[in-house]
């Protein structure tokens, strides 16, 4: 449906985005994650036709949208990171203005506004000025303004930054509903890994202006699939026990702290029975035993050497 091919953007000689390839299939929900300054917003601005790429192509169903920006604008809704709203106008007045410049009028406009307000749950506050709203409510109006013309593709650029958990959940639910029930194609950027994990079928991981990994959640997690991590809490812990654990075949790393141990071993080493047996021999009781599955955050850490919020 929409593809970015070898997209690059330079600002005053500095490379903001380099050779990005990205694809959005019809009805898909795709996440674009990366830390602040990774180039996510610049990529989105290029895709949505607001800035021209230095090089590369953007195609919507085969049509070049760089030369024909009107093609993508017709079917695209963008929720920018900033609140692109008139603070001095009410929620209704904002939506009425943006709806009317989408050339909607009369009943069509009124129905669109009502529907958008209903989706974001602000029908009862529509007459209030935006400046009187909480951060979360403003973000919801920001989303409503992008839904007025019932876009086929919705791009959300960090729509949950700086808001309370309740509003955040509401926004996530709205996005999920738009994707699952309305069939809207979603491109969701965030530096909250758990949000994209919840919402997206596929992910692009971006850092320093480049896509460093892409795929489904399982595909990305498989990057870390060669190891298993175990955490043990013990009744007592001595040097002898630690040494004997280290000697077990397949163990790669053992860390001990007070009465806890973290063991990293080769995947499929099947260590549980050996560990239980060893503890029994040493008269040590295992109080707690956990197997840790790697998260996307771990994948990101593994790929970039830093966490998303660094």
């Amino acid at each position: 449906m929409l593809e970015a091919i070898h997209l690059s953007k330079n600002f005053k000689g500095k490379k903001a985005v380099q050779d990005v390839n990205l694809y959005l299939g019809h009805g898909e929900s795709v996440g674009l994650i990366g830390p602040n300054g990774a180039g996510k917003s610049t990529t989105i601005s290029m895709i949505s036709s607001l800035i021209k790429p230095t090089s590369g192509e953007i195609k919507l169903n085969g049509v070049n949208t760089i030369t024909k920006p009107g093609e993508i604008r017709k079917i695209l809704g963008v929720v920018p990171q900033e609140l692109a709203l008139y603070q001095e106008l009410s929620a209704y007045e904002n939506l009425h203005f943006f709806g009317s410049i989408y050339k909607m009028q009369g009943k069509e406009l009124k129905d669109s506004i009502e529907q958008a307000l209903e989706i974001v749950g602000l029908t009862d506050r529509q007459k209030d000025l935006v400046k009187t709203f909480s951060g979360g409510m403003k973000r919801r109006v920001n989303i409503a303004a992008a839904l007025l013309h019932r876009p086929e593709i919705l791009i959300l650029d960090e729509p949950t930054v700086g808001i309370d958990p309740q509003s955040r959940n509401h926004i996530l639910e709205t996005v999920r509903m738009l994707n699952e029930k309305e069939g809207t194609t979603i491109l969701y950027t965030s530096h909250y890994m758990e949000e994209v994990e919840q919402l997206c079928d596929r992910l692009y991981i971006m850092d320093h202006g480049e896509i460093i990994a892409a795929g489904t959640k399982a595909e990305l997690l498989s990057i870390l699939s060669t190891e298993d991590t175990f955490k043990l809490e013990l009744s007592k812990l001595d040097g002898n026990f630690i040494e004997r654990v280290r000697a077990i075949e397949g163990i790669r790393k053992v860390e001990a702290f007070q009465l806890q141990m973290k063991i990293i071993a080769k995947k499929g080493s099947n260590l549980i029975s050996e560990l239980v047996h060893l503890a029994d021999q040493q008269h040590i009781q295992i109080i707690n035993f956990q197997t840790e599955t790697p998260s996307l955050e771990d994948v990101f850490l593994h790929l970039t050497g830093r966490t998303l919020r660094d």
């Binding site: 607001l50 604008r73 963008v78 920018p80 900033e82 692109a84 709203l85 603070q87 410049i101 303004a145």
Partner: peptide
Amino acid sequence: QQVFNRILLTNSHPMQ
């Protein structure tokens, strides 16, 4: 406040 960008995205002619 990016409102101008949102206006551009509606495909309205900037001359308006």
